[in-house]
Write a protein that binds this DNA or RNA. Sequence first.
DNA 1: TTTCTAATGTTATATTATTACATAATGTTA
DNA 2: TAACATTATGTAATAATATAACATTAGAAA
Lengths: 130, 130
Amino acid sequence: MQKQNFLTKNQQIVLDLVEKSSEPLKAYTILFNVQKKGIKAPLQVYRALDKLVEIGKIHKIESRNAFIACHNSSCQVAKATAFSICEICEKVTEISSAGLSKYLSNFKDKDGMKYSKYNLEFFGLCKKCR
Amino acid sequence: MQKQNFLTKNQQIVLDLVEKSSEPLKAYTILFNVQKKGIKAPLQVYRALDKLVEIGKIHKIESRNAFIACHNSSCQVAKATAFSICEICEKVTEISSAGLSKYLSNFKDKDGMKYSKYNLEFFGLCKKCR
DNA sequence: TTTCTAATGTTATATTATTACATAATGTTA
DNA sequence: TAACATTATGTAATAATATAACATTAGAAA
C-alpha cells in the first residue's frame, strides 16, 4: 500500500489528532478520540504511532508514555530529541537548540564512542508554575 | 518506621537484586526473583523501586521500563542521569562524564530557563555488536 | 493478470503500573 | 508512657500500556 513519503489513512488520522493537541497524548486517549473515524483497536493506534515516530513526525515522551507532534520544521530530528517537562502542569516543550544538538551528537564516551541517537528529557517548573 | 538514611527490608531485598544484576531488570522480573524472600505482590516491588529511585540508589531506564543500580559512587546523581543503550544486545551503561553533566546542568533554553533534573539516553551499538 | 509486499482488521493476551483499603510499625508530642 | 501522627506493609482488585497471532485486503511490481 504505502511505498513511502505519504501516510496511510490511519497514520494521517492519528497524526492529525496529535498535531492538533497542545499537550502530549497517550495511546488510549488517541484511540478514544479516533474511534469515530473508524479506528477500533489499540494495535491500529500503536502501529500508526510506531510509523510516525520512525519517520520523525511525532516523538514519544518516554517518561510519560505519551506522544507529541514534532515541532522542528526540518524534521531530521527523529534521532536527536530534547524536551522540557514541567513537573507541576506537565507542559512539554520540544527544545531546539543548535548548540545542544551539536554537543550531544558529537559527544563521545570514555571509550571514544559516539552515538547515532539520543533522547533527552529535562524536568523543572515552567514559567507559569514558578 | 523509616526516618531516613537506611532502607527497609523490602527496599534492601530489591536493591540487592538490582545491584547484583549486570543488566537492567524489569519490575516483574524483580518480583519473580524476590518471591522466595517474601515479597508477594507487584506493589511491594514498585514501592521499593519508587523509593530507591528517589534516593538515587537505582535509576529507571525510561525507554526500557527497567531499573539499574546507580554506578556513580557519589550518588547525588539521581537528578542528572545519562545512559548508553545498545540497540542490539540491550546493554546499558551509565555515563559519568563531568563535562556532560556540567553542560546539561547549566543548559539554558531559549527563555533562559535552567532545569533541576534531566535524563539522557543515548542509543547506538556497543563495542561487541559493531 | 499474477504475484509480492506492506498495511489493515480483529481477537486475545501480555506487560506494566496504580487504586483502594486494612493493618502494623515507628516516630513525635504532651 | 499514652495518644496521636506518620510511614511502611500486605493484599486484592483493577487500570493502563503494549504486543502476539492470524486472517484479510490494498496497492505495487513484474
